[in-house]
Amino acid sequence: MSYQSDDEQVQLLKNLWKDYGQPVILGVAITLASVSGYKYWQKTQSQQIAEASSLYQNLLDTVQVDQQNQLAALSLQSLTEEQKATVNHLVTTLQSDFEDSQYAAFATLFLAQQQVQDGQLEAARASLEWVLAQKPAPEVNTMATLRLARVLLAESGENGQKALDLLTGLTSEKTYQATVESVKGDAWLALGDRVKAGQAYQTAVDAARENGQNRPLLQLKLDDLAAMAPISSNEQKSSEQEG
């Protein structure tokens, strides 16, 4: 067995460092940076969620809404001018700083509801389109789409086809089927097609019953449609041709 001199060992270490040391250190550095970066990202995400949650809580506090069933309660609120100013500020902040959060989506849905109550249909449409542009969770997407379709119909009966196009591309759970079909019926009625409107309302009534939902307004729509002048043969043929 031969032994290397001290000089030979030093040279060998130098060669090993030259060939392997720097890549190894670089790999370690990259790994450490990745771990550190991921931890920083996690911390940042947690902070952002907390901040967005705090802003949304401020909105709830502003309109004095209980935590339970927030959207339903929020939609019934009539706000003072001071409350409206605060809500607008909070929603704008959530949209600009936390646009990907569900808090921003829920806050904007509430804002749109208030805008509808104030007769600001164009502003409400813009708010709902903002929510949909963020590609929110399926339930929020369904809610925003339905409300946008209603706003379009409220703006003008000529928007009936736009409303139908929105709803046709909507994938929703069975719990929303009755509402979707009801709004479709409204759109068909706006377009003057009472046959398809009646079919949509009937589908809505059937879906509500199947899901155990008590929706008397759906039956009322169907009854009101039946109380109109009888559908002429021309209307029937026109509807069948379009279908």
Rank of each mutant, 00 (worst) to 15 (best):
A72C: 03
Q120D: 11
L60C: 13
L90W: 04
T44H: 14
L74A: 10
W130L: 02
A50I: 07
Q68M: 08
H89V: 11
T86V: 15
G119H: 02
D61I: 05
W130F: 08
A50N: 14
V131S: 05
S127T: 01
Q47K: 14
L71C: 03
T80W: 03
N58W: 15
V91L: 00
A85W: 05
E51H: 09
W130C: 00
E122S: 07
A50V: 13
A123T: 09
R125G: 00
D97R: 13
S46Y: 11
F106D: 14
N88M: 03
T93M: 09
L79A: 03
S46T: 12
V65F: 05
Q67I: 10
D100H: 12
Q114T: 08
Q64G: 05
V131F: 05
A107C: 12
T108H: 00
L74I: 06
S53Q: 08
K43E: 12
D100K: 12
N58V: 14
A52T: 15
N58F: 15
Q67Y: 14
T44R: 13
F98D: 06
S101V: 07
Y103I: 08
L55C: 04
L128S: 04
D66C: 07
V116A: 11
L59A: 12
E81M: 09
S127K: 01
H89L: 15
Q77M: 02
Q113W: 09
Q68F: 08
T80L: 02
E81K: 10
G119L: 00
D100S: 13
L74F: 07
T44Y: 13
S53T: 11
V63G: 06
S127N: 00
Y56P: 01
V87M: 04
L94P: 01
V91G: 01
Q83G: 02
T44I: 10
Q120M: 09
Q77T: 03
F98A: 05
E51N: 12
L121A: 00
L128R: 03
F106E: 10
N58Y: 11
L79M: 10
T86R: 15
W130R: 02
L109C: 06
A112Q: 04
A112H: 05
A105W: 06
H89M: 14
G119R: 00
Q114D: 07
Q70V: 14
E129Y: 02
Q57N: 14
T62W: 02
E129C: 01
N69T: 08
D97F: 06
E129F: 03
A107I: 08
S75P: 04
A124T: 00
Q47V: 08
D100N: 10
L59C: 09
T86S: 15
N69R: 04
V131H: 04
Q57L: 09
Q120K: 13
H89R: 13
Y56W: 05
V65L: 05
Q120V: 06
K43L: 14
I49F: 15
E122D: 11
D100L: 08
